[in-house]
Amino acid sequence: MDKMLPAKGLRVLITAGASGIGEAIARAFAEADAKVLVCDIDANALERLAADVPGILTVVADVSDEAAVTAMLEDARVKLGGLDVLVNNAGISGPTGRIDTLSVEDIRRTLDIDLLGQFLVVRQAAPLLRQSEAGAIINISSVAGRLGYGLRTPYAASKWGIVGFTQSLAKEMGPDGIRVNAILPGIVRGPRIESVIRARAEAEGISYADMEKQYLANVSLRRMVEPEDVAGLSLFLCAPAGANISGQAISVCGNVENI
C-alpha cells in the first residue's frame, strides 16, 4: 500500500489552490506529508487555507502574468528548496454564448489564463523539476478537452490545448525523468459549475434545475464528481505505483458522454 501514496517530503506547487479542486489537491498533499506551496489570486482565500492547514505556504500570483510567475517560482526555490511536483490547476470558466456574440477580450482572457498560463508556469518550473529525482507535472484539463462543448468554445479550445501540451511535454521531458499527465475532471461539485450551469440555462432560456438535469443525464453515473476524487488521482500519479504513467489524459468524470 505504501506504493499507492507519494513519498513523504515531496515539494509541491499548486496553482489556484485556495479553493475548489486546487484546494482539495493541496489538502491531500499536505496530509501526505508533502511540502506544499499554493498560489492564487485571492489573498483572503489563501489566508484562510494557511490558517486551516498549518504548514501550507502561500503566494499571491496570476499565472497569466509572466513577472508574477517568475516571483512564484523563486518562492518555490527558496521556500520549498526546489520542486518535485507541479500541479497546473489555474483556470477560469470563460464566457458562455455563440461564437459571434463573444468579445475578443473574453476569448483572449480565457486562453491566457487556462492555456498560456500553463506554458508560462512549466517554462520556469522545468529547470527545478529537472533537478528532482521524482519530477512530475499534472495539468488540469477537463472533459471539455475530449468532447465538443457548444456555447463554451474558448474554454473547450483551451482544455483541448492542454491535452496536446501534456502529451508533447511528456515526450520532451521524459528523458529527464519527468512524468507529465493531464487530469480531465467532469462536472465537479462547487460554485464554479453552478455558475456555468446558470449561464448556460440563461443562454438557452430554460431553468437552472432543467439545465442541471441535462448535464447529469449525460453522465453514466448520474452524479457530480467531488473535488477529492481529482485529488486522489493526483496523489496516485505522484506515487511509486504511478511511476510509469506519463503522457496520459485521464478523465475523472463518472463517464461523461456528452456536454
Rank of each mutant, 00 (worst) to 15 (best):
Q124T: 09
A126V: 13
P95C: 00
E47S: 09
V59C: 09
I56C: 02
L120W: 10
L102Q: 06
R123A: 03
G81K: 11
V122R: 12
E105F: 00
L116E: 12
L80N: 10
L102V: 01
K79Y: 08
R108M: 07
L128G: 01
E105Q: 14
V63N: 08
D75E: 14
A61V: 01
F119L: 13
A61Y: 06
R98D: 07
G55Q: 12
V69A: 04
D106P: 06
L120D: 09
D112G: 03
E74K: 14
L120S: 04
E66Q: 13
G91L: 06
I92R: 09
R109F: 04
L73W: 03
N88D: 15
S93F: 05
A51W: 00
V60G: 00
L80Q: 13
L111S: 04
A125C: 00
E74I: 12
N88V: 10
I56R: 12
P127Y: 01
N44K: 15
I107M: 02
I92K: 11
L86T: 03
D106C: 07
G91V: 09
A67K: 15
N88Q: 13
T110H: 08
L128Q: 09
D62L: 08
Q124A: 08
F119Q: 10
A61M: 05
I92D: 07
M72Q: 02
V59F: 03
D106Y: 06
V63R: 12
A45H: 11
A45T: 05
L86F: 04
M72E: 08
P127A: 05
E105G: 02
A126I: 09
R109I: 01
A67W: 06
L102I: 06
D62K: 12
G82D: 09
L46Q: 03
T58I: 13
V87K: 15
V104Y: 08
D100G: 03
S64K: 15
V122K: 08
E66C: 07
I107K: 06
N88P: 13
L102E: 00
D114N: 15
P95T: 02
A43F: 00
A50H: 12
D114V: 06
R108W: 04
L120G: 07
L115H: 11
A90C: 02
R109V: 02
A61D: 10
D62A: 10
A45I: 02
V104T: 07
G91Y: 11
V104N: 13
R109A: 03
A126F: 07
R77G: 10
M72P: 01
S64Q: 15
L46Y: 03
T96C: 07
V59Q: 13
A68E: 14
A45G: 10
D112M: 10
D106F: 02
A43E: 04
K79P: 08
L115T: 08
A45Y: 14
G55M: 02
L102W: 03
D62H: 13
Q118Y: 14
P127T: 10
V122F: 04
L49M: 01
G97N: 08
V63C: 05
V122H: 06
N88L: 06
T101V: 03
N44T: 12
E105K: 15
L80I: 08
P54D: 12
G97I: 05
E105L: 09
A125W: 05
D106G: 05
A51H: 10
T58R: 14
A68D: 06
D84S: 08
P127F: 01
S93I: 05
F119I: 03
D62F: 01
G94M: 07
P54Y: 14
A71L: 11
T96F: 03
D75H: 15
D75A: 15
A125Q: 02
D112C: 04
A71D: 14
A68V: 04
